[in-house]
């Protein structure tokens, strides 16, 4: 593997790992607070799935990097500027509808990406994707079902999810951003060009929004920066909470 490819692959695994980890953490914040007992368990199940994916991606990132950093070291000993997650997933929880919209926008992207990654020329990437895609297919079913219920529900639930959709829409452009690294990976058949996912993502969004009687916001100015470590102010607070224990008690075991 050339140095360029190795660097690109490291960054890519980091991006997928960080995105899963941060979204998993956001969902875990619902534990004990969801509107229904059954939904509380559902959201934390999804959170655990995502943290599980993050472990696999980060462990692989550490292996590709070859500097002896394991998944815990990457998760707990990096600061905001070294995180590579999408800005969408670090947006704080507002209400249940907002969480469902954030999840649906992400899941619709993740299911298309993981589906294609199973055909990656990199065996580890393909293996992780094959394991994760089964869970992600359920995630998108869960978030799409809820979006339809809320959008096509009462006047209040409809207004809340439409508002969340309008707020979160500017964060969707980042999922399809390409750069030199993604071009390198696409050329080697390791990962699809991010733009390639756009048509399938659009189709799913159109289908579910129509059923949910929601209107798709216009594609205007899009937020950028997460992939270069330029984050919103929210990520720092999230990491402070998530990393407190390992930073206060380095290498603690129990």
């Amino acid at each position: 593997m050339s140095n360029d490819t190795q660097q690109a692959l490291f960054g890519y695994a980091l991006r997928l790992g960080d995105t899963s980890l941060v979204l998993g953490h956001r969902l875990s914040e619902w534990c004990g607070h969801a509107p229904e007992l059954e939904e509380d368990i559902a959201l934390t199940n999804v959170a655990l799935d995502l943290v599980g994916h993050a472990r696999l991606w980060l462990a692989y990132a550490g292996e590709v990097e070859g500097k002896g950093r394991d998944e815990d070291r990457l998760a707990y000993r990096r600061d905001v500027f070294d995180y590579r997650n999408h800005l969408l997933v670090e947006q704080p929880n507002r209400d249940f509808g907002h969480t469902i919209v954030r999840q649906f926008l992400h899941d619709s992207w993740a299911v298309e990406l993981y589906d294609r990654l199973t055909a990656s020329t990199d065996a580890t990437l393909a293996g992780i994707a094959a394991k994760a895609v089964k869970e992600v297919r359920y995630h998108v079913r869960h978030s799409a079902d809820w979006l339809i219920r809320l959008g096509d529900g009462t006047a209040v639930s409809h207004a809340k999810v439409q508002d969340a959709l309008d707020r979160l829409w500017p964060y969707t452009g980042e999922m399809f951003e390409s750069d030199a690294a993604s071009a390198t990976l696409a050329a080697a058949g390791i990962a699809p060009d991010p733009l390639e996912l756009r048509a399938a993502w659009n189709a799913r969004i159109a289908e579910i929004l129509a059923e949910a009687t929601l209107s798709r916001p216009a594609d205007g100015w899009m937020q950028k920066g997460g992939l270069r470590g330029e984050h919103s102010e929210h990520l720092g607070f999230l990491l402070a909470e998530m990393q407190f224990l390992p930073r206060a008690y380095p290498d603690a075991t129990w």
Binding site: E36, L37, E38, E39, I41, A42, Y138, R141, D145
Partner: peptide, 20 residues
């Protein structure tokens, strides 16, 4: 048993509550 708005939600909830 569990509460759900309809059959489809009941299946989803059952999957999350009883088949972990």
């Amino acid at each position: 048993s569990l509460h759900a708005a309809d059959g489809r939600m009941a299946l989803d909830n059952a999957r999350d509550v009883y088949t972990r």
